[in-house]
């Protein structure tokens, strides 16, 4: 029987951090009605995908398209295109509204009326693929996470991928409903809730004029287990980071002794204003 001795940490210290540049960002927060209205506004969103395509997209995908459009307009040095970029997209409970409808419809009408659009548009990979389609990204486009414990997955994947495949950039996107509330059998939220997205443009650490720097650090004292459910979303962490100016870094615990840290670049004297203002209560909290 093969045996395993307690490992030393030589390799962990050799590679104790991985860094990249944040070159643009945006956040979006939309009501249920506002996000569904986007299905008829394809010409206002990146890629002009067509209303017939957006009709089937998940609300989290639609909100992300708005956020990415805003982020594109905020680059200090905009990339010529996003052809070789990748997408890492974290969602929370994607497809819940459509799936609730599908469950109900199946119970009433049987298999022949099940929509062919649910699997292609509401699976974990779907928002990343749709964003890649809108921006013409031929780099890897993957979905990560999926539940209330999945946002750390996005930080880990985006930064490690950027270094692995010599990509010029990665769109790191976090979407979800805040708060995640109950829905009825038609998929309609039973209380007020917003669909939110944080979109970050990540580029290699060597990129000039970064807005902020993001690092993943191995720390033997950082928690091993994830907080489930996470008490703070990436969106909230980031909005607090923006509101605090240069005073506080963003810190996200990723499990396994890893943590993400974001600091404004030394070169920055002021942050890019968010196109959509931070709610007053968040500013006060920060």
């Amino acid at each position: 029987m093969p045996t395993m001795n307690t490992p030393n940490r030589e390799t962990a210290t050799e590679h104790d951090s991985l860094e990249c540049a944040v070159t643009s960002y945006a956040t979006t927060r939309l009501s249920y009605d506002a996000v569904n209205a986007l299905r008829k506004q394809s010409d206002t969103l990146p890629g002009a995908l067509g209303n017939s395509v957006l009709r089937h997209s998940d609300e989290q995908t639609l909100t992300a398209l708005v956020a990415v459009k805003d982020a594109i307009s905020q680059f200090e040095t905009p990339p010529e295109d996003f052809q070789n970029w990748g997408v890492v997209f974290s969602t929370r409970y994607l497809g819940r509204t459509a799936f609730a409808q599908a469950l109900n419809k199946f119970a009433v009408d049987g298999p022949w009326n099940v929509s062919v659009q649910v699997v292609p548009n509401r699976s974990l990979h779907s928002p990343a693929s749709m964003l890649g389609l809108a921006l013409g990204c031929h780099g890897p486009c993957v979905g990560v996470g999926g539940g209330l414990d999945g946002e750390p997955d996005a930080w880990l994947t985006a930064i490690s991928l950027l270094g692995q495949q010599s990509l010029p950039g990665i769109w790191l996107v976090f979407s979800g409903w805040e708060p995640d509330e109950r829905i009825d059998i038609e998929g309609t939220p039973l209380t007020d809730t917003s669909c939110t997205t944080l979109a970050l443009a990540l580029q290699p650490a060597s990129t000039s004029n970064p807005t902020a720097r993001l690092r993943i650090v191995y720390d033997q004292f950082a928690p091993v287990a994830l907080e489930v459910p996470a008490k703070t979303t990436a969106m909230t962490l980031f909005e607090n980071f923006i509101a605090s100016g240069n005073e506080q870094p963003l810190t996200a615990m990723l499990g396994g002794g890893l943590r993400a840290e974001m600091n404004w670049s030394n070169a920055m004297t002021s942050t890019i204003p968010l196109l959509r203002p931070i709610p007053t209560n968040l500013k006060k909290a920060a």
């Binding site: 974990l124 486009c141 993957v142 996470g145 999926g146 750390p152 880990l156 994947t157 499990g255």
Partner: peptide, 11 residues
């Protein structure tokens, strides 16, 4: 388990 974890999908 004591390391990091990840759920990933490329369909």
């Amino acid at each position: 388990l004591r390391g990091p974890q990840l759920t990933v999908s490329a369909a």
